[in-house]
Design a protein around this nucleic acid. Structure first.
Length: 443
RNA sequence: GUGGCUGUGGCGAAGCGGUUAACGCACCGGAUUGUGGCUCCGGCACUCGUGGGUUCAAGUCCCAUCAGCCACCCCA
C-alpha cells in the first residue's frame, strides 16, 4: 500500500516529536555529564557481525533480524541492537589505542522483526552507552546509577532494578553442566522450546513462561551459587557500590538476558504498568565480546534503554514534561503591498532572533487574526494599506486585545525589546547563556 | 510464528439487512463595511480497510486478505 507505513514502524509527528526532542536533550545532557561521547554507526552492518556478536542461539539472530542481500550479493542486516556495531567501530577505528576506558553513547533506531504490540515495534529507538577498557565493579554500579539518574530526571517513579551475575565463561561452563545435570532426568517434561534450549543454552530455560518448566527449574541451582571466586568477588563489590550509592536493587538469579555476550553483571530496569513489555532498559558486562570480535582482550559494559518505552512509562505515570514552545509573532497583511512589507519584516524579525510568520494567502484580516490566535502569537503586527501609506503599522498585543500604532522602521527593535531575544515562554530549552546559573524548571 | 479484539468522512463516534450513512471535534466561509479566542448560520469533490460470496436488497451476514491494537514467544 502506497499510503501505509510498514508494519511496526511509526511516524513521529508534531505534537509527539517535542517529547522526543526533550528526551534526547536529557539523554545527551546526562551522557556528557558522565563523560560519554556520541558515536554514530551505520544503520546496517554485515550480517556476520550480529551473528557472531549477538550470538547464534539468541532469538534476535534466530528469528528477528532484518537481513537482506545488496546488489552485489552481500548479506547485510539492519542493526537489531547497538553493542555489536559499537565494538566493530571501536576495532575498525582503533579507538581503544589511546587512554582507557573509552566511553560512547548513541541514540539510534534499531530493527527487529517482531510482532508489534504495546511497547514493541519493528523499528524502535534506543539510547545506549558502551564503556571499553575497564573491568572494575565501580563502573558497573555507576552505569546502573546513570540509568536511574536519567529516569529520575525525566520524572519516572517506581522503577525496579533487577540484578544478576551470569559469571564468566569459566563459571558459566561449570554452571551449565550443573544445570543440565539437574534437568537431565526431567528433560522430556520440558516444553519443546526448552528441550532445544537444554543443549544449546540451558540458562534460557529460566526465561520460559511455561509453568511446567518453571517448576522444573524452581529448585535448580542458580548461577549465583556457581560463580567462581573472582566473579563472586566482583559481584559482591558491585553490590557494595550500589549500596554506597543508595540504589535499591532486587537480586534475580533467574534473569538471563537475551544476548549471548553478557558476562558477570547483568541488569534490567523494570517499570510496571506500561503493558507486557515492562523492561525500559537493560544491559550488562561483556568482557569477552571485543576479543571474540577479533580485537584485543578488552572488557566492556553497556546498556540500552528503549525510548518508546520510556515515553510510554512517562505517559502512564502522567509525567508533565517541561516542553517549551517558542513564542511567535504573526504578521497580518492587507493588500499586495502590505504582503511585501510583511515578507520583509518577517525576515528582519528572524534576523533579530524572533520567530515570525505571515499569511501568504492574502486572506481576510479576521482569518489572519484567527491564525495568529491559534499559533499562540503574543503579538500580531497588522500591516494595513492605510497605515502603510503613513509608514506605520498596528501592533496588537493578543492577550490584552489592545493595539497601538508604531512606525514601521521601529517595529523590529520594539518587538525585540518586548519579547526578549528569542526566549521561549518558560525559559526552558533555550540557547541562552547570558544568565548563567539561571535554573530552569524550578517546579 | 500463534491467539483475541477492531477497521465508517482529517480525528472521535452512531448505524447492526431495506429510503438522501446521524452526531461531536477540527477545518473553511459568513453574521453591514480591515480585527482573534464566545455564540449563531452555512460549507467541507460519496470507495463505509481491500477482494470475493450469500441475498430481491449489505456499512450491517459469511469467507479471504491486509492493517491496527492487545497478549504469547522474546525483548528495548
Amino acid at each position: 500500500m502506497l499510503t501505509t507505513r510498514p508494519r511496526g514502524t511509526n511516524d513521529l509527528l508534531p505534537g509527539e516529536i517535542e517529547k522526543w526532542q526533550y528526551l534526547e536533550g536529557v539523554l545527551r545532557e546526562v551522557a556528557e555529564l558522565y563523560g560519554y561521547q556520541e558515536i554514530r554507526t551505520p544503520i546496517f552492518e554485515h550480517t556476520e557481525l550480529f551473528q557472531r556478536g549477538v550470538g547464534e542461539t539468541t532469538d534476535i539472530v534466530e528469528k528477528e533480524m532484518y537481513t537482506f542481500l545488496d546488489r552485489s550479493g552481500r548479506s547485510l542486516t539492519l542493526r537489531p541492537e547497538g553493542t555489536a556495531s559499537t565494538v566493530r567501530a571501536l576495532l575498525e577505528n582503533k579507538l581503544h589505542a589511546g587512554a582507557l576506558p573509552v566511553k560512547f553513547y548513541y541514540i539510534a533506531p534499531m530493527f527487529r522483526y517482531d510482532r508489534p504490540q504495546a511497547g514493541r515495534y519493528r523499528q524502535f529507538h534506543q539510547f545506549g552507552v558502551e564503556v571499553f577498557g575497564a573491568a572494575e565493579p565501580g563502573l558497573d554500579a555507576e552505569v546502573i546509577a546513570m540509568m536511574l539518574d536519567i529516569y529520575g530526571r525525566l520524572g519516572l517513579k517506581d522503577l525496579r532494578v533487577e540484578l544478576n551475575s551470569v559469571g564468566c565463561s569459566d563459571c558459566r561452563k561449570v554452571y551449565r553442566a550443573a544445570l543440565q545435570e539437574h534437568l537431565k532426568e526431567k528433560l522430556l517434561e520440558l516444553c519443546p522450546t526448552c528441550q532445544g534450549r537444554y543443549k544449546k543454552n540451558p540458562l534460557r530455560i529460566f526465561d520460559c513462561k511455561s509453568r511446567q518448566c518453571q517448576e522444573l527449574v524452581a529448585d535448580a541451582p542458580t548461577i549465583t551459587e556457581s560463580l567462581c571466586p573472582a566473579c563472586r568477588e566482583h559481584f559482591s563489590r558491585v553490590q557494595e557500590y550500589l549500596k554506597e550509592l543508595q540504589i535499591p536493587y532486587h537480586l534475580n538469579p533467574y534473569m538471563v538476558r537475551g544476548l549471548d555476550y553478557y558476562t558477570r553483571t547483568a541488569f534490567e530496569i523494570v517499570a510496571e504498568g506500561i503493558g507486557a513489555q515492562s523492561s525500559i532498559g537493560g544491559g550488562g558486562r561483556y568482557d569477552n565480546l571485543v576479543e571474540e570480535c577479533g580485537g584485543p582482550p578488552l572488557p566492556g559494559i553497556g546498556y540500552a534503554m528503549g525510548m518508546e518505552r520510556i515515553l510510554l512509562a512517562l505517559e502512564k505515570q502522567q509525567v508533565k514534561l517541561p516542553l517549551s514552545r517558542r513564542q511567535t509573532i504573526f504578521l497580518a497583511a492587507l493588500g499586495k503591498e502590505a504582503q511585501k512589507a510583511a515578507a520583509v519584516l518577517a525576515q528582519e524579525l528572524r534576523q533579530r532572533g524572533l520567530s515570525a510568520e505571515w499569511d501568504y494567502q492574502g486572506r481576510s484580516l479576521k482569518a489572519q487574526l484567527k491564525t495568529a490566535d491559534r499559533l499562540g502569537a503574543v503579538f500580531t503586527v497588522i500591516i494595513g494599506e492605510e497605515e502603510l501609506q503613513k509608514g506605520t503599522v498596528l501592533i496588537r498585543k493578543m492577550q490584552e486585545s489592545r493595539q497601538e500604532s508604531l512606525p514601521l522602521e521601529q517595529v523590529g527593535s520594539y518587538l525585540e525589546k518586548e519579547c526578549g531575544k528569542g526566549v521561549s515562554e518558560d525559559g526552558a530549552g533555550t540557547m541562552e547563556r547570558e544568565k548563567t546559573g539561571a535554573q530552569d524548571s524550578k517546579n
